[in-house]
Write a protein that binds this DNA or RNA. Structure first.
Lengths: 99, 99
DNA sequence: TACTGCCATAGCATCGATGCTATGCGGTCG
DNA sequence: CGACCGCATAGCATCGATGCTATGGCAGTA
């Protein structure tokens, strides 16, 4: 677990780098999206391979994305959303710090 | 307008390529986000250079993004959102096609 | 007219995401 | 046990976004 340099390591490293609050956020968002997709996929009773085919990508790409291995791009998110019968929604919401 | 190969041309070309519905969508989202950022920026009374500095990028990058010249990545959107005092929100919403 | 600020673009280097094939590993089933 | 399925990863090629500098045009304005 410690001499291996895998996606989890990479992600953690990215999220602990100093002064990278934005990258941290993006990485966190990517991770959460990955979890959500996994959830949706399992809800459909699909395997990674099936989702991959439906989204026009390969099983490895799906696995990488679900694991939060990379910060996905909008085109990829779009394709996944379509395959999962969802709509991709990207917006700037007012920063409700007013709490 | 016709012998120049600029971002508008590129974008239009991308959006009219056959069988690229997902890329079309992503490009459209990118374009709308660009417009929204421009709107927000002007609301703050900032120039592209000022926003660029606040978001840790250059004026040219801001211009390119606002013009929809490229499909932005999540880290970039995050930084812009922060600079504009907004929260970046990415989600898969239920596709209300059920009509 | 000269100067200055703002925006649009070009051109290029670099970094990182994606696409791909090939494995490895743990179950399950025959 | 052997075949198969599902998931995780490695390694590599390629494409595309970003970062940068340098311009050019366009309004104001002195």
């Amino acid at each position: 677990m410690s001499d291996r340099l895998d996606w989890n390591d990479l992600r953690e490293r990215r999220m602990t780098e100093p002064g990278a609050a934005e990258t941290y956020e993006a990485t966190r968002i990517a991770f959460e999206l990955g979890q959500e997709v996994r959830h949706l996929r399992e809800g459909h009773g699909w395997s990674q391979s099936q989702l991959a085919r439906a989204a026009g990508m390969t099983q490895s790409a799906v696995a990488r994305f679900e694991a939060g291995g990379t910060v996905p791009t909008l085109p990829v998110l779009e394709r996944l959303a379509r395959a999962l019968d969802r709509r991709l929604d990207v917006r700037f919401t007012p920063n409700a710090d007013a709490a």
